[in-house]
């Protein structure tokens, strides 16, 4: 099958006095082209889950496969297929962009990975690909020479999105992409994500504590609580008729403007 398949995935951290189960027995499929939101409180395991899907962390038990090929338990040198196909945008562009690198170097970095060299699906002409993705995220061409600190939060998140797009990924994982941004720029970044996902035909995995953001971008939603998936389904159905008490609590807690 094409897309992600997770079976019985758990992640237990054993660094402290008592082991902490961050992710508990998660079964999940994400088909190519789906837009899936993962919601839950802090500590619910949603970030750990997508980090494992991007092979930035590894499950303690269970299996993760992408396009039928194993992602977990595979040495980094054989993850080239995943590294070009799956890209991540993190919450805080202040910490996810290297302050000592120029924007053009930051955006070109995924193209320079030795794992991705000589792969047909990765653009070979780096300079033109960098210009292309910077234009796609709405930044002027001359920003390449500048450094991250010269930009506002919203612009930095655009740079992070441009970097993610550079190797022509099939899957975009966005972990709280707008929660560090002001409400005034949040809409611009969400509009950009919506447009790019549609234009590039991306599979989207959106992690957010903001249920309205997920409702707007995703056709399917997965609700996590204390490491486990407690409910999943079509967004309209889950929001309209939540089955699990925690889902109901989450939905009731969303601050809304009075009419």
């Amino acid at each position: 099958m094409s897309g992600f398949e997770l079976a019985g995935v758990s992640r237990i951290y054993r660094s402290g006095r008592s082991p902490v189960t961050a992710v508990r027995e998660v079964d999940l499929t994400v088909q190519t082209g789906e837009r899936v939101g993962i919601v839950g409180g802090s500590g619910s395991g949603k970030s750990t889950l997508v980090r494992m899907m991007a092979a930035l962390d590894h499950p303690t038990s269970g299996r993760i496969a992408y396009d039928g090929r194993p992602v977990s338990g595979v040495p980094e040198s054989r993850l080239g297929f995943l590294r070009s196909a799956v890209q991540v945008v993190f919450q805080d562009p202040r910490s996810s962009l290297n302050p000592r690198m120029r924007v053009s170097e930051i955006v070109a970095e995924p193209l320079r990975s030795p794992l991705l060299q000589h792969r047909g699906d990765v653009p070979a002409d780096r300079a033109s690909r960098v210009a292309e993705v910077l234009a796609a995220v709405g930044l002027p061409a001359d920003v390449g020479r500048r450094y991250p600190h010269e930009f506002s939060g919203g612009q930095r998140q655009r740079i992070a999105i441009a970097r993610a797009l550079a190797p022509r990924p099939a899957v975009l994982i966005a972990d709280e992409p707008v929660s560090a941004l002001d409400v005034s720029v949040r809409g611009q970044v969400l509009n950009l994500l919506t447009d790019l996902v549609a234009a590039e035909g991306l599979t989207l995995l959106l992690v957010s504590h903001d249920l309205e953001v997920v409702r707007h971008l995703c056709d399917r939603v997965v609700v996590m609580h204390e490491g486990a998936v407690v409910e999943q389904g079509a967004t309209d159905q889950v929001y309209g008729e939540p089955q699990h008490p925690y889902t109901r609590e989450l939905l009731a807690a969303v601050p809304r403007l009075p009419d």
Partner: peptide, 18 residues
């Protein structure tokens, strides 16, 4: 307008302050 995200249809353009 930007805070009224719940009034926008899925996938449609969100109003922004700009």
């Amino acid at each position: 307008a930007a805070a009224r995200i719940d009034r926008v249809q899925r996938g449609e353009r969100l109003p922004t302050v700009a």
